[in-house]
């Protein structure tokens, strides 16, 4: 049976109580998916959380209490806290994008300052064969590797005669 809570507008957040669970519908243009994920994650220690898309641009979040049924004051508190967390996560996602350079620079400085340089033993034990990250732009490649790859793809060096059928000369 649909229920509305004081102070929680039905057109923004729809609340339904059913067997101790409730569903909120979230407008994706206001709350991006990454914010919904972040808020949902905060609640998975106290609630069972299920996400669905009832229609385009809407995400439905279903919460049910782990220890007690969500009803009465507990339901209102939970939905209210979820809404606050959602707003906080949406804003955080935005400012994390805006301040990315500062955050990365401070974090990198803090962690490198704390870790210090590796010892010779640590360098010896380091597994260099493991791919550290995807490198689509070839930033981590040596000049030789990059050059060889281009060559293979058809980037012929200037001394080589251009083939009549095209390749890099085109």
């Amino acid at each position: 049976m649909p229920v509305t809570f004081d102070g929680i507008p039905g057109d923004l957040v729809e609340v339904e109580l059913d067997r101790g669970a409730m569903s909120l519908q979230v407008d994706e243009t206001l709350y991006p998916l990454e914010a919904v994920y972040a808020a949902a994650y905060v609640f998975i220690d106290r609630c069972y959380v299920f996400l669905d898309k009832p229609s385009e641009g809407r995400i439905r979040v279903t919460l049910s209490g782990k220890k007690a049924k969500l009803e009465g004051d507990l339901a209102r508190e939970t939905v209210g806290e979820f809404a606050n967390e959602l707003l906080s996560c949406a804003w955080r996602a935005q400012i994390a994008r805006d301040s990315r350079a500062t955050i990365e620079s401070v974090t990198a400085r803090a962690l490198s300052g704390a870790r210090g340089a590796p010892s010779l033993d640590e360098l010896e034990a380091f597994d260099f064969s493991e791919e550290a990250f995807d490198d689509p732009l070839g930033i981590a490649m040596s000049w030789e590797e990059k050059y060889a790859k281009k060559k293979k793809e058809g980037a012929a060096p200037a001394e080589e005669p251009a083939k009549a059928d095209g390749g890099a000369a085109k």
């Binding site: 955080r92 400012i95 994390a96 955050i103 401070v106 974090t107 803090a110 962690l111 870790r115 210090g116």
Partner: peptide
């Protein structure tokens, strides 16, 4: 020691307590 400092929780806390990232 370096693994303690490189632990993902240490990284997460450095980011989470950066006021530039905090609503």
């Amino acid at each position: 020691y370096r693994d303690l400092m490189g632990h993902e929780t240490v990284r997460a806390l450095a980011i989470a307590s950066n006021l530039e990232a905090q609503p």
